[in-house]
Design a protein around this nucleic acid. Structure first.
Length: 335
DNA sequence: CACGTCAAAGGGACGG
DNA sequence: CCGTCCCTTTGACGTG
């Protein structure tokens, strides 16, 4: 089976084209040709493409087929994303329907049908800002398709959901084609939300119902949100681990200091209320004249805050004699 | 067969 | 009131 798709008659760039090589890793038969870029529009999303698509560059052919090229028996169809350009543009599906038009959820003959709401976008055939993509699905690629995508003729037979609506029975599970998904994905990169016009045009271009496009964007936003939630969760997890480690460390230090305190009751001779510290010089004095105990003060206020007993082990040690520069010792709040 | 993925449906919230 | 969004659920399908 061959699937030919060409997007745009006046070549212009589009991010999807730059993603194509990556897609090609999974899609053996994938051929894209592209021309003038919309680098100005899309550079914020993909800076790499600017290097490959200068505005004056001739159309670039990306042949992603890993095997020998296959002939192109049918003229390409044309698609473009309207909000990437300044006017509603051309959309010309293969007129003869020979190369299977892009989608898939409808037979080509149904591609000209109006949208569900009965207001199909009127597309001008002569846009100058469109892009041009040729998709060639090799028969080998069809082998990678799920069996439900293929009918007896090897062609995709996903029916429109409207068929189900008409039946009013079960809703058919339909899978969007890789091309549709890629196209929607690129559209999503441009706009995570759609206005009605964009939705209609995109639906028309992808041969989908507007509701399908809308639902796809809703689900896509949900996936993005879920992913972000997972990232946030991971970040919080790491923060929690860090804090847990810090807490353990401080608890251990506290234990050590308590042990030190018990083994050296000498420090207990100084009631806490007798210690004062000069905020300017950080020197500690005692207003107990009989005491000549040496005390230490923290060099780091945060350390002291984190570990109240740390001051007992801080190397900077002073005696009451040091605090002797005509400054009245400050009273502690408790005194 | 269990599980994951994803399109789609349904309902509530919200803004114009 | 209508259209859209988000959230939840459903169901079809693919995969290990």
């Amino acid at each position: 089976m061959e699937l030919a798709l060409s997007l745009g008659d006046a070549p212009k760039g589009f991010p999807i084209l730059d993603k194509a090589p990556r897609m090609a890793n999974k899609e053996p038969g994938f051929c894209i040709s592209l021309g003038q870029s919309l680098a100005e529009k899309v550079s914020e999303h993909d800076s790499v493409q600017d290097e490959t698509r200068a505005s004056s560059d001739p159309p670039l052919q990306l042949d992603l087929l890993p095997f020998t090229p296959i002939p192109r028996p049918h003229p390409p169809s044309y698609l473009r994303i309207p909000w990437l350009s300044d006017s509603l543009g051309s959309q010309r599906f293969s007129p003869d329907g020979g190369a299977k038009a892009f989608d898939v959820n409808r037979v080509p003959a149904a591609g000209a049908e109006e949208a569900d709401d009965g207001t199909p976008p009127s597309l001008s055939p002569n846009s100058v800002s469109s892009f041009h993509v040729d998709f060639y699905m090799r028969s080998g690629n069809a082998g990678s398709k799920s069996k439900r995508e293929l009918d007896d003729d090897g062609e995709r037979t996903n029916s429109r959901a409207s068929d189900d609506d008409e039946n009013g029975s079960t809703r058919k599970k339909l899978r969007l084609s890789k091309e549709q998904s890629a196209f929607l994905e690129e559209s999503f990169k441009e706009h995570s939300t759609l206005n009605p016009k964009q939705k209609l045009v995109l639906a028309k271009q992808l041969n989908l119902r507007p509701r399908q496009v809308e639902v796809w964007f809703q689900n896509r936003r949900a996936r993005t949100k879920l992913k972000q939630t997972e990232v946030d969760c991971e970040h919080l997890k790491r923060c929690c681990e860090t804090l847990t480690d810090e807490n353990k460390r401080l608890q251990k230090e506290l234990q050590e200091l308590r042990a030190l305190k018990t083994s050296q009751p000498f420090y207990m001779q100084l009631p806490a209320t007798t210690l004062t510290m000069c905020p300017s010089c950080e020197r500690v004095a005692t207003n107990s004249s009989s005491s000549t105990s040496a005390v230490t003060i923290p060099n780091n206020a945060s350390q002291a805050a984190a570990s109240p007993l740390m001051s007992l082990t801080n190397p900077r040690t002073v005696t009451p004699f040091d605090y002797d520069h005509n400054v009245q010792p400050h009273r502690t709040p408790s005194s």
